[in-house]
Design a protein around this nucleic acid. Structure first.
Ligand code: MN
Ligand code: MN
Ligand code: MN
Ligand code: MN
Lengths: 217, 217
DNA sequence: TTCTTAATTTAGACAAATCTAAAAATAATT
DNA sequence: AATTATTTTTAGATTTGTCTAAATTAAGAA
């Protein structure tokens, strides 16, 4: 059994592992809003417990045990987010903070029943895949909207930025999960994207386009 | 904002206040599974924050602020218990431990939405009243089954013991919330109670009868 | 390769919550 | 009222997670 804090470290290391191997001390410190010295202390503790593999001055990688623990926290986080949106009518920009707390509730029965109650959802409100109880993900294949060419079509199936301002912005533009879009033009000058959304023309900045994930078809 | 631990102390002091005024150090220590010395330390801290009124060697009472905080935790605890039973099919003896964790989740929006989702329940799975968001309880008027006389009739509307073995025992006997019972005889020898439950005769020990709460009618 | 900068770790301290053992205050008995 | 027993508080230590400041290592530039 891990503490609330240890769980947060494992989850952050898990997410950062998708970007760099091994995960560096400062990267963790930034994410967790703490100082590098604190991270080093915690890393040593996680290493003692064989949840991470640690090489001094190099960084950490999750052990199999650590990875499974982290994935389970991600599973809980995402299931709770689905619950908040589907059952309690939260907006997709309101769920993350609460899920950060709920993900630490310790009860396997609770999470299995919640999964069942939600009818075994495969993705969370931001399009992120929900691992099953064994830690297996359904493979997702999306591409950044900013990578699409003129004439490319597809559906919005995810976002790579979860901040409330960004999500609210998308909501206002009507760019929500499941919506079908077609790229009309990529403006050469600033990289902004002209697109067609339900018969309406729309222009979004390159910065926004980068964080919208599309499944082409 | 109070810590997880402070919240637990406030809740325990609140419950113990129904028994004794002021609440003594050892009573708290017993409930919270800690030592008297630790309780004294925490009491001082809560006193600093003006959540309790503390007189050395006498004990503590909740201030208005402390009482409201405690009631809010009780509200959350009981709403979560309703959720677990009504929506996730937990048994009434399985909810308490999980609710002990869920009650500390910090989000007013969450708890108001949960209340709405559950259709504003007035009592929890053990018959305990759920305070509204202002801390007001619906007045409950029940009497211990052990206090009933021959011929008295009423409905089971609560239990004063929440342990899993006790609740499972009641479940097995069919003595669940809402059931109508009639006292046929109170056995003089051991105080056990003969009662009628759905045309069936049933004998329960005095110890069990003490913890079943009845609304007479 | 040597110097400089950046990243990381160590050393020592601190706040929160707990504990044990000892001291002090209150309550109960003789 | 004096003695004994119980309850409560203090003193000092411990664990977890954090911090600042200083020392160390690694990486980058000249
Ligand atoms: Mn999230
Ligand atoms: Mn999400
Ligand atoms: Mn309970
Ligand atoms: Mn209850």
């Amino acid at each position: 059994m891990q503490s609330y804090t240890e769980e947060n470290y494992l989850k952050v290391i898990y997410h950062l592992s998708e970007i760099s191997h091994p995960v560096q001390t400062n990267a963790i410190a930034d994410r967790i809003q703490t100082k590098a010295a604190s991270v080093t202390d915690m890393i040593k503790k996680l290493s003692e417990k064989e949840l991470v593999h640690y090489v001094k001055y190099q960084g950490v990688t999750l052990t199999e045990k650590g990875k499974l623990t982290a994935i389970n926290i991600v599973r809980k986080h995402r299931l709770w987010e689905v619950f908040l949106v589907d059952k309690l009518n939260f907006k997709w920009d309101e769920v993350h903070e609460v899920a950060e707390e709920l993900e630490h509730i310790q009860s396997n029965l609770l999470i299995e029943r919640l999964d069942e109650f939600l009818d075994y959802p495969k993705v969370d409100p931001h399009g992120d895949p929900i691992p099953d109880k064994n830690g297996n993900f359904a493979e997702m294949t999306f591409v950044k909207l900013s990578k699409l060419k003129n004439g490319d079509k597809g559906n919005i199936t995810g976002v790579s930025e979860h901040s409330s301002p960004f999500l609210k912005h998308l909501e206002k533009l009507g760019l929500t999960l499941g919506k079908r879009v077609e790229v009309i033009d990529v403006v050469e000058f600033d990289g902004s994207v002209e697109l067609l959304l339900e018969q309406e023309k729309l222009n979004i900045s390159r910065e926004v386009a980068k964080h919208i994930l599309i499944t082409k078809n």
